[in-house]
């Protein structure tokens, strides 16, 4: 049987299109599992990251918003940017997230919403600031996290974040305000007794928030904090223990660097580590970011080389840059200062 030429083209295009669908859907699931599920959960339920499978979220979040969010991330707010993903990969992940909803992506215009920002500022202070912060900086901590009950409200997003501001359209902001978000503490403006014009004014205000995106980048901190000790290895270790305890840490263990790797009795005894912990600080850090295991436990390493003793630790300020968490950066600054104080006291 001969297929008429236009019909043949149509069949071919349909086959190609369905192949593309088959290629995209499973790839999107795999890519989501690889890049997103660790934080957002396999089904988008949330975890370290916010829940993505909420009906009210997917009803107002456009594919453009999701794609821009993947590209830009949320600087300083845990959600990283993914510059290494191709456009097709970003599209596949977005398609996978969209598959959790029966709704198509909303089609928003790009035009600005006209509203009175001054009036919106007052409305924001009265109705939004208690969750989103007085400057729209958002709630503290990460999403649901392993450490909190699943039913607990998620942390309010940062509305002044440059990644958010660059991803969201005025129309999506307005749609979110009009709809609210069931499953989170976010109410609709109607539930707050407000009108559509109030939503427009709030959008105008949100667009004027200071994103701080013009801040100067800071120099990259050295990866290791190091001191040379005036004492021998044994005395430096004793000094360290005293300095650690004097700052309300508990000594957990002293061990050779090679312990557990070399046979017992064959370790290099001139390379040793001191582990210590302050449980209150640890719990504060876990509340900021449950991934802080990468910094734990606190440790200082002593190495004797050619008669001198070097005392060193990781620099939490350097490692913290991997986590994209501004709150964690502040905690790491404190930890850096503590490490320096301890090592200085033990070595001078």
């Amino acid at each position: 049987m001969l297929i008429p030429y236009p019909a043949f083209i149509g069949v071919a295009l349909t086959m190609l299109a369905s192949q593309a669908v088959f290629a995209t859907a499973p790839q999107g699931a795999l890519l989501f599992e690889r890049h997103c599920a660790a934080c957002h959960g396999m089904e988008g339920d949330g975890g370290v990251g916010i829940p993505l499978n909420l009906n009210d979220f997917l009803a107002v979040a456009s594919d453009d918003y999701l794609r821009a969010t993947l590209r830009e991330g949320r600087p300083g707010r845990v959600m990283p940017a993914f510059p290494g993903l191709s456009d097709d990969e970003v599209k596949a992940i977005t398609g996978h997230i969209r598959s959790w909803s029966d709704d198509d992506s909303p089609d928003y215009g790009t035009g600005p919403i006209q509203g009175q920002a001054e009036r919106g500022e007052v409305l924001f202070a009265n109705h939004c600031a208690s969750c989103h912060g007085d400057r729209g900086q958002g709630g503290a901590g990460t999403g649901v996290t392993f450490s909190r009950p699943r039913g607990a409200p998620i942390e309010a997003p940062s509305l002044d974040n440059p990644g958010f501001q660059n991803s969201v359209s005025d129309a999506m902001l307005k749609a979110t305000l009009l709809r609210g978000r069931e499953g989170t503490p976010m109410p609709s403006v109607a539930a707050l007794g407000l009108q559509e014009q109030d939503a427009d004014d709030l959008v105008a205000h949100l667009r004027q928030l200071n994103t701080g995106s013009g801040a100067e980048p800071e120099p990259v901190p050295e990866p290791v904090i190091q001191f040379e000790s005036s004492y021998d290895l044994e005395q430096t270790m004793e000094n360290l223990k005293q300095a650690v305890v004097g700052r309300n840490f508990r000594v957990i263990r002293e061990q050779y660097v090679e312990q557990g790797l070399a046979a017992e009795g064959e370790e290099n005894t001139r390379r040793v580590m001191l582990y210590f912990c302050n449980f209150a600080l640890l719990n504060d850090a876990l509340a900021i970011d449950p991934r802080v295991g990468m910094f734990l436990p606190c440790r200082i390493t002593l190495v004797e080389t050619e008669g001198s003793v070097r005392v060193m630790s990781i620099n939490p300020k350097n490692l913290s840059r991997l986590f994209n968490n501004q709150q964690l950066d502040q905690a790491c600054q404190q930890m850096h200062d503590l490490y320096e104080e301890i090592m200085e006291e033990a070595t001078l």
Binding site: E33, R34, H35, A37, A38, C39, G41, M42, G47, G73, P80, A81, F82, P83, G84, P217, E218, V220, R291, R321, L322, F323
Partner: peptide, 13 residues
């Protein structure tokens, strides 16, 4: 400020 990307923190579920 050398770029550190999402791929630099390995996290899996």
């Amino acid at each position: 400020s050398p770029m550190l990307a999402a791929e630099d923190l390995y996290m899996v579920r």
